[in-house]
Design a protein around this nucleic acid. Structure first.
Lengths: 347, 347
DNA sequence: CTGTTAGCGCGTTCAC
DNA sequence: GTGAACGCGCTAACAG
């Protein structure tokens, strides 16, 4: 067989063998209705004989000026993202829209700052969906610099990128009101404040220094709620966990309680953190909610199982909205698409 | 600014503005060390001034003959795959390797048979990892037809594609020995037998008619174990669930028990199914394992929580191995990379 | 309905 | 270390 030695079969070869022009062969694949049945058959027969699998995707992309793929950048943790139910729900939403629109979903590895930037500018995609990152993240800037449409979920805001997500500050204030109701010593269990991800307990951290926009907004909202209560933010202890992990949250909650014995309300940034906090309280012999009220965030499985008051939002819908926005320019406002779900962990 | 009106900046324009040849500009991006520092600076300055974000990915792919992306085909359920912990663990493994090798991971939507085939041949990727499918799945054939390397996880075997996965028959036989030990009326709770996914209870289904290779192998292994016990496969009731869902498993297990009152051992194909079965047994007033022994598969969270005897295998490692195989041709044999974990649900 | 012309943007030649 | 030509494989635009 001659095709086993030739490196690659081209459309032109197929056309020649079929006895038609290259364009007829091309149309056979891209617009079959423009080609007579006779020619089409000849072309397909020639293709089969030669082992031609269809137009080369890269060549087609170059010529058409579009890649047929949506790029997804998962912030800092490529592989861990698959362990995070929130992230996977978001991806499922993106995937759904890609499927509808016949686009591939191209997930870009994020590992090392400089390599990441290079890969983002070198990816053959028509636009980017970026999963929450830090202020000034080089990967976001790289996506914007490509000149293709970019949507960031959660933030940060940046010129050239649209942000999709709920109003975290408003939601935090609302759930803060629930958890801090009648509290005297409110406290917070938070995601990391900066990319350094150091775990620490600090009193009233300066929001300006918090580089993760989602975390910043939520802290601001909890601060609003504390202020509503007459408590100075500077007096509110915030335990920053380095990851979204129940065990670490437990340790951190223990430290919080040790530092402020009379803590009577604990707002956390995820149901996972809240579940760890509940364990710490239990170990310290404290009852929730009678002695300490606790809230989570996300309305995850665990919040239902443990009866944790939480903020519900649909990551899947937000993922779908991000994809739609990049692919078709459709705009959806999610700012008030959240809801407080009260359960047994608060009064 | 002239660059706001021009549609796209090319390397040639950058070169012209920098006062160097196109090739010097090209090398500045692909092999910076081959260009003098002076030229490099001029090129980068010109690029910045013009808003040039680097070489066009499609053009580069065309010229280089490689796409820089690994294609992943998720079988029948694109969006549901993100809900399945086994699938996400597998994807995490694939992602890990893609990150290492600087490749993008391009997930292809699978929705509609004919469109899927078209998209697979049209995707700009260097090879495919296909997640378990049915015998003769058109998507697998489409991947193979592209002429690029293809690895299928789980199966089916096909010429031109390598299969990665454990020896499901051997593992099923091994766990079958544990669950069926001393049993008189063994039964099975299975994944769907064919793409039609109909839920039904059948006695000793003909393995030949089972079109999902993983399911078929496991049924064969359970059959081996029954035979080891002196029980005829034709007498073994198999409840096929249409999805991997605990609630459906509960219903199906109830039906099984109704059909064969004295069932005393139930081998299932996932921990999820096993957990549903346990609920059904509890509702029927049957004790596990004293009255009915039960096993799952996967060593998932729920199997630890409920004490279900199960088969452990690392989906993450298998995902990584699939990616390595496609990207670098490395072969790893997983056939005996499984382990029985005995817990309270069996004697 | 089909063929011709002319590139898409880049990188591999091979010279200098 | 740099420059000039050519073509990767395909398709938009226009004839015919």
């Amino acid at each position: 067989m001659s095709n086993s030695t030739s490196r690659r079969v081209t459309l032109a070869q197929v056309a020649e063998r079929a006895g038609v022009s290259t364009m007829t062969a091309s149309y056979t694949y891209s617009r079959p209705e423009r080609v007579s049945a006779a020619s089409r058959e000849k072309v397909l027969a020639a293709a089969k004989a030669l082992g031609y699998a269809g137009p080369d995707p890269s060549a087609r992309s170059l010529r058409r000026g579009q890649a047929g793929a949506l790029g997804v950048v998962l912030g800092e943790h490529l592989t861990y993202a698959f362990d995070d139910p929130q992230a996977t729900a978001f991806l499922a939403g993106v995937a759904e829209v890609c499927a509808e629109q016949g686009q591939a979903m191209s997930i870009l590895p994020v590992v090392d700052a400089t390599a990441d930037v290079a890969r983002i500018s070198a990816a053959a995609v028509d636009g980017y969906v970026v999963w929450t990152t830090e202020d000034g993240a080089p990967v976001l800037q790289a996506a914007i610099t490509t000149g293709r449409p970019v949507v960031v979920h959660g933030g940060p805001a940046a010129e050239g990128a649209r942000v999709v997500g709920i109003d975290n500050r408003a939601a935090a204030r609302a759930i803060g009101r629930v958890v801090f109701a009648d509290a005297r010593v409110p406290a917070v269990l938070s995601f990391p404040l900066t990319g350094a991800r150091e775990a620490a307990v600090v009193a009233g951290p300066e929001p300006h220094d918090v580089t993760f926009p989602v975390t910043r907004e939520r802290l601001l909202g909890f601060g609003d709620a504390a202020r509503d209560l007459g408590v100075d933010w500077a007096d509110v202890l915030v335990g920053a966990c380095s990851t979204n992990d129940a065990r670490e949250a437990q340790t951190m909650a223990e430290e919080l309680v040790a530092r402020a014995r009379r803590v009577d309300a604990l707002a956390t940034m995820s149901d996972e953190l809240a579940s760890g906090a509940l364990r710490a309280l239990g170990a310290a012999g404290l009852q929730a909610p009678s002695q300490v009220a606790v809230t989570g965030w996300d309305d995850a499985e665990v919040s239902r199982a443990l009866g944790i008051t939480t903020v519900a939002q649909s990551m899947r819908e937000q993922g779908a909205a991000c994809a739609h926005q990049v692919l078709s320019g459709t705009t959806v406002d999610f700012s008030d698409q959240w809801q407080i779900i009260e359960r047994a962990s608060t009064h």
